[in-house]
């Protein structure tokens, strides 16, 4: 793994923004410290030679599990679990 990055507050804040997670000052500080330790430990992967090794997306590779193109309506009320609704719409926050 390259050394072009450093794990600091800025990085944690950036990740939190990407992940839409509001963090407190304490959390940012704590996570920054812990991330350094954890990601440093994960670097032991560098020791494994994976040249020419295929990634395993699943433990056993299955393929071509497909469904036929048939419309099979689901009978339910999609709005049953939400408070944020207006008529038959879900109601969401504004964009900007």
């Amino acid at each position: 793994m390259s050394d072009h990055w450093t794990i600091d507050r800025g990085l944690v804040e950036r990740i939190a923004k990407v992940a839409r997670l509001e963090l407190t000052e304490d959390e940012i500080e704590k996570f920054t410290k812990q991330l350094k330790v954890i990601l440093e430990a994960f670097r032991e992967l560098d020791d494994v030679d994976t040249e020419g090794v295929e990634p395993s997306f699943h433990p056993q590779e299955l393929s071509n599990v497909l469904r036929e193109d048939e419309a099979t309506p689901w009978s339910w009320d999609p709005l049953e679990n939400t408070e944020h609704r207006e008529g038959r719409y879900f109601k969401g926050p504004r964009i900007q």
């Binding site: 048939e70 099979t72 309506p73 689901w74 339910w76 008529g87």
Partner: peptide, 25 residues
């Protein structure tokens, strides 16, 4: 052009359907 959606059996034809009428979990 399909009868059903890409990953579920909901109809792709929503002309005249009520909002969220062609949905599933």
């Amino acid at each position: 052009e399909t009868e059903s959606k890409l990953f579920c059996g909901c109809s792709t034809d929503s002309e005249g359907a009520e909002p969220n009428g062609n949905t599933c979990p």
